[in-house]
Each structure stands twice: as structure tokens, then as C-alpha cells.
Design a protein around this nucleic acid. Structure first.
Length: 640
RNA sequence: GCCUGGAUAGCUCAGGCGGUAGAGCACUUCCUUGGUAAGGAAGAGGUCGCGGGUUCAAAUCCCGCUCCAGGCUCCA
């Protein structure tokens, strides 16, 4: 029989050949690296025979570097882990064990949770299975048989999964050694493929992710065909840990949280505040340049306001409880929008006055469940770089293009380059707003994104009930995705607050309203930036830009002179005139990741110049102060 | 909120099967006046997260709470 390769080549193979045989025909190298295949677009086990159709099947061989390859590799590792766990703990019930973006997990129902020691035991057991190189066997099975089998094994979770499989789908099981699992596949041909793996962590997880269901024990792990890949991954994990914003925040003395102040509430130190101030100054300047006006609003508002906005109906769970003042109910704001709308409603607007773009660095407070708080990424009090665009239907598309460009400009200014856009459309269930408004909004979002030529996905039905949105995710220096920007239509609030403008024909029309946060929340943005640069802030953001250090106390006067000159030139400068050796001062400045160090001693004082050392890079030699200042200024301007 | 594991000096951590604690760094003082990632000495620093119980005695054992970490669920 014949099969066709993706490049069009036709290959002759014998009956009942598998993709592995095909790979072997192409080259032994490919056969060695192959982990899975697709046959006519369907993922296919390497060892599963290819059907002999009239038309030659299209067979694609996939290696580990392919996404499907990775997923298969990891999924098979999950099975082998489950097998090992069943060997060691026969009472455990198995549930699901999928591949995820980085590795895999498997959830077990086990009365006594796993301990870290168990992980080592499980790894050792897995090693045995791998060394025995046992084949994965795929079997198609009738629903009845499968049901009987899992019932006899007492695997009630598998029974539940089985029931959820649609009637027209073939039920398959995969067997490896003594372990049988209900599984769609595909899998590696055998356990020997798993050259190196590591179990990483244990965590609780609800069955099917529903908190009303029992808590299962989840084990996370990762695996690779080569040891070097595992080492590289572990190094990456280590690097990520080093860059953890909570760790760097402490190390560089930027912010803190404290028990007495309360969970999820951030205290900003002078250095952290300096950075925030620079970001915010840049933010204000750019907003004014981009046609925004700034507004401000209070931190609390009357109950009635939140009733009108609907927050008390649909957002109350996330709001801090009511306080009563003079017999009136008040709430701390979880959002800024109702205030901006009240500003809008102070007068009548003509269609000529639109669009309005009102921005505020508005600090909001949301009640987040205790278990979800996480450093600066998830807090209870945070400052949104919020703005509301109020415009006419004919302005919507332009406004979206503008805000999208503005957003990308802002993010790029901070050194982010790699973006992915997600558009979310009208939910199927309930939503508010006229269909034609949704249509117009969704079309505008798509057109705007297409114009920018940035990869995007559409999440059909993924929008909020009150309007479609664009989210921008960015990748940081470690290729991790973060979501900051969101641009969101709102068909709910204009209606609830009865916002209108007077149209050309004298009629009252409801404007379109767009919420947008470009950097998202300042706290989250700060954390992202901090992890992205690993604490090595670009010069324009560094809280201390230069540390002037003396070789001995004899040169303090000259050093002070230099420091004063820098400060006069708006360079954030610190003078280290401590009674320490220069090596010590350098070490401490390097540890604080101060971008430039100036060293002054006898040579410098005599020549009226300075010696410059750059963070990480090292000694740059000596130069006149003026030249150094010019260098700093151009580096600051370039934001590099 | 749920599961698991934690909380000891400003920081990083050791110790402790019940008899009120220790290191390194940081801090203070003194010596040293030193040229590109740790000079030396001395000193000061802790109700061992908070509250209760058991006990002659609790930082240690028990219970409750707070906070933190990794997940789950939820989200900027």
C-alpha cells in the first residue's frame, strides 16, 4: 500500500505498517526522533497500523519539537507516573492526567496526601517502568466492556468520564504493563522513550475543577527526550525563581506587604515609589499627547451609585462590605467607571464634542478570596491605568485603532516586543445591548487588529455580558505570557445611567462606551516589568541611576562635587562615602543593580575626571564628567 | 473559600523528642585610607506569627486564629 507525505512524496509500505515504519523508510534518524504521527490529520500512535484506503493516507511524522509531539510525550509520561503510583499505592483511584503547556499532571484520589518523599519513590518506580521499555497498547473497546472493566477495578472517576464520552465516539483504552487507562491517546510506542523526567510538585485540585467536588491530589511533572533539555528547563525554572518579583522586591527594597496593614495591600518604599512615579509621569504625558483628558474621582461612593451601575447586583461578591455614614450606605470603589459617567452626566453633550477620552490612575479595592492573593499580581487594592472613551457609532473603529496603537506604543516603551491578541465576542447565554451594537463593536475590534498585523485569536462567546473585548498578552524575557491590556466595550452602563448626547438631528442618542486599561494595573505591570528585566531596570526607570563612590575618605569632597553636578542634571545619584574598600562598595552597588558606578580617587581628582563602571558590563575606563552626563542623557532618552 | 506545607534577629537560614535561642549578612562603634564583586575587631538586635489549653515549666506538645507559599476555583 501507499502513503503520502506532507511534501507530496508517495512512499510504498507493506500492509499493516505503522507511522514508525514510514519514518524508518524516510530515515533512521527521523525514526529515532519520532514520537507521534498524524494520519489524514488525525493524531495517530507511531505503532498503530495505518489503514489501507483507496486514496493514500497523508502521514506526518512528528518529533518532540512539535507541539503535538510534546503533548504526546508528556501525556505518556503522565500515564507512566499513574502506573507507578498504582504500583506503589494500589488503593489510589486515578482520574485524569493531561499534558499542559509545560509538562503534565495527573490527579489521584488518595485519602492520605502525597509527601515530597513520595515523589522520589514514584520517580524511582517510573524509572523501573522506563527501563523495562514496556509497550503502550491501544485497544478499541465497547462502551459496555469498558464500563464493566472500570467498575470491577473500582475506578469510579473513569466511569464518570466514560459516561461523558459522546455516543458516536469510539472508546479506546491504553494499556502499559498492568495499568489500563481510559484514554483517547495517542501515546508513545513504549515507556523506553522517556529518557528523563522529573516530578515537580504536589497540589490539591478539585475533581473537574469544581470546588463542590472532592479534592484530589495532583502531581506535576515534566519530561524530555534528552537530558540536556531537562537541564535547560530546570535552569529556566531557576531563572524564573530568581526573577520572582516578590524576591526582587525585597532584595531591591521596592515594596512590601505587611501583616498589620493586611493581605493584598501594598506598601511602596521610596525606591519602588520612584519607579512608579516615573512610569506614571510617562503615562500622563503620553495620554495628554494622545488626546486624553485626565479626571479624578473619590475612593468611596454612595450605595445608590453602585445600585444604578449594577455592581451591587453582579459584583457584590468582589466588593468590600458597606459602611454606613450619617445613616447612608457607602462602598469603596471596585471600579472607576460610575464616577466617570457621573462626570459625563453633569451637562448635555453635543455629537460635536465626542469622542471624549477620560483617563485616571484610579485606585480601586476589590475583595479577593484569601487563597488567590499572589505578590503584586493579585492584590486587594490596586491602581488601574483606567480610561473611558465615550464616542459615536461612526467613531468606534477609529477609536479602537487609536487605543490599540497607543497600547502597543506604551508596552513597547517598556521593552515588551512580543504580543498576542485575543478578541472575545458576545456570549451565547445572556448579554445586554442591541445586536447591531455588538456587531459594530466586534467588527471594529477585528478590523483594528487585522490592520496591526499582530497574531490574534477569537474567543467566540468569551466576552463579558456587557460587551466584546480585546485582551493583549505579552511575552516577557523568559517567554512567559502576561495579560495586562484590556479594551472592553460596555453596552450596560450607558443604558443604566441613561447617558445621551444630542445628535445632529436633535435627537438624544446613547453613546458607545469603551473601558480600557493599557498597562492593566500598576501593581501588576510593575511586577511584570520587574520580572521581565530581572531587576535590571533600564536607566530611565532605575530608582538610583548612579552611585558615586570614593576610593578613600580623602576624596569625599571631590565625589560630592561630582554627585552635585549629576543631581543638577536630573540624574538620580547616590553618594557612597562610607568607610569601606572600593571592592565592597562595588559589590553592594552591583547587588542593588545600580546601572552606573562612578569611582573617584587620586587619579580622578588630579585629572578632574571620573572612572565609570557599568552594572554587569564592568569597567568602562575614565572620562570627563560632561561626556558621561551626555551618555546618560541619550541612554535615558532612548529608554533602552 | 478549599487541599498541602510553612512562620525563629532587618535579610537568608540553623536549632530545638518541654528547662525562655544561634550563624552569616545588614546595623552601631573602633582600627584600617584601601583602586573595580566581601579588610579587621568589638557591640547591639528576638515575648521563636497571635490567642488559648496541658504542665512546676511551652519557642518546642494540643486547639483556634492570622499571614505566607504551591495548587484548585476566580480575576486587572
Amino acid at each position: 500500500m501507499k502513503v503520502k507525505l506532507p511534501n507530496g512524496d508517495i512512499i510504498d509500505i507493506s500492509e499493516n505498517s505503522s507511522p514508525l515504519d514510514v519514518a524508518q523508510k524516510i530515515s533512521s534518524g527521523l525514526a529515532k526522533q519520532a514520537v507521534v504521527a498524524s494520519v489524514d490529520g488525525e493524531l495517530w500512535d507511531l505503532s498503530r497500523p495505518i489503514p489501507d484506503n483507496d486514496e493514500p493516507s497523508i502521514v506526518e511524522i512528528k518529533k518532540f519539537d512539535n507541539d503535538d509531539g510534546k503533548k504526546t510525550f508528556w501525556h505518556s509520561t503522565a500515564h507512566i507516573m499513574a502506573y507507578a503510583v498504582k504500583n506503589l499505592f494500589p488503593d489510589v483511584k486515578v482520574t485524569i492526567g493531561p499534558a499542559i503547556d509545560n509538562g503534565f499532571y495527573y490527579d489521584f484520589d488518595k485519602s492520605v496526601p502525597f509527601t515530597p518523599d513520595d515523589l522520589a519513590k514514584i520517580e524511582a518506580e517510573m524509572k523501573k517502568i522506563v527501563d523495562a521499555d514496556m509497550p503502550f497498547e491501544r485497544t478499541e473497546i465497547s462502551r459496555n466492556e469498558a464500563s464493566k472493566m472500570f467498575e470491577s477495578m473500582g475506578e469510579n472517576y473513569k466511569l464518570e468520564l466514560l459516561e461523558a464520552i459522546p455516543d458516536d465516539e469510539t472508546v479506546t483504552i491504553y494499556t502499559i504493563g498492568g495499568f489500563v487507562d481510559l484514554c483517547r491517546g495517542p501515546h508513545l510506542p513504549s515507556s523506553g522513550y522517556l529518557k528523563c523526567f522529573k516530578l515537580l510538585s504536589i497540589a490539591g485540585a478539585y475533581w473537574r475543577g469544581d470546588e463542590r467536588n472532592p479534592m484530589l491530589q495532583r502531581i506535576y511533572g515534566i519530561s524530555f527526550p534528552k537530558k540536556s533539555q531537562l537541564d535547560e528547563y530546570l535552569k529556566w525554572l531557576e531563572e524564573a525563581e530568581k526573577r520572582d518579583h516578590r524576591k526582587l522586591g525585597k532584595q531591591l527594597d521596592l515594596f512590601l506587604m505587611n501583616n498589620d496593614v493586611g493581605p493584598g495591600l501594598v506598601l511602596w518604599t521610596p525606591k519602588g515609589t520612584m519607579i512608579l512615579e516615573i512610569i506614571e509621569a510617562f503615562w500622563r504625558k503620553q495620554h495628554l499627547k494622545n488626546g486624553y483628558q485626565l479626571v479624578r474621582s473619590p475612593h468611596i461612593g454612595r450605595e445608590n451609585l453602585w445600585q444604578t451601575s449594577g455592581h451591587l447586583d453582579f459584583y457584590a461578591d468582589n466588593m468590600f462590605p458597606k459602611m454606613v455614614v450619617d445613616g447612608q450606605g457607602y462602598y469603596i470603589k471596585p471600579m472607576n467607571c460610575p464616577f466617570h459617567i457621573e462626570i459625563y452626566k453633569r451637562k448635555r453633550y453635543s455629537y460635536r464634542e465626542l469622542p471624549l477620552r477620560w483617563a485616571e490612575l484610579g485606585t480601586v479595592y476589590r475583595y479577593e478570596r484569601s487563597g488567590v492573593l499572589h505578590g503584586l499580581l493579585r492584590v486587594r487594592g490596586f491602581t488601574q491605568d483606567d480610561a473611558h472613551i465615550i464616542c459615536r457609532a461612526d467613531q468606534v473603529e477609529d477609536e479602537i485603532v487609536k487605543v490599540l496603537n497607543f497600547s502597543l506604543f506604551m508596552l513597547r516603551s517598556f521593552g515588551f516586543e512580543d504580543f498576542h491578541i485575543y478578541i472575545s465576542t458576545r456570549p451565547k447565554e445572556k448579554s445586554v445591548g442591541e445586536p447591531q451594537k455588538w456587531e459594530l463593536a466586534q467588527e471594529s475590534l477585528k478590523k483594528a487588529v487585522e490592520r496591526e498585523n499582530i497574531p490574534f485569536d477569537i474567543d467566540e462567546g468569551g466576552g463579558a455580558f456587557y460587551g466584546p473585548k480585546i485582551d493583549i498578552k505579552l511575552k516577557d524575557a523568559l517567554e512567559r505570557e502576561w495579560q495586562l491590556t484590556t479594551i472592553q466595550f460596555d453596552f450596560n452602563l450607558p443604558e443604566r445611567f441613561d447617558m445621551t448626547y444630542t445628535a445632529q438631528d436633535g435627537s438624544f442618542q446613547q453613546p458607545y462606551m469603551i473601558h480600557r486599561a493599557l498597562l492593566g494595573a500598576m501593581e501588576r505591570f510593575f511586577a511584570t516589568l520587574l520580572e521581565h528585566c530581572g531587576g535590571n531596570f533600564p536607566l530611565w526607570l532605575a530608582p538610583v541611576q548612579v552611585s558615586v563612590m570614593t576610593v578613600s575618605e580623602k576624596f569625599v569632597d571631590y565625589a560630592q562635587e561630582i554627585a552635585n553636578e549629576l543631581i543638577d542634571n536630573d540624574i538620580r545619584t547616590e553618594l557612597d562615602d562610607s568607610d569601606q574598600r572600593i571592592g565592597y562598595k562595588i559589590r553592594s552597588a552591583e547587588g542593588q543593580k545600580i546601572p552606573y558606578m562612578i569611582i573617584v580617587g587620586a587619579k580622578e581628582e588630579q585629572n578632574r575626571n571620573i572612572s565609570v563602571r557599568k552594572h554587569i558590563a564592568g569597567d568602562l575606563g575614565s572620562m570627563p564628567l560632561g561626556e558621561f552626563i551626555d551618555r546618560l542623557k541619550s541612554e535615558i532618552d532612548s529608554k533602552s
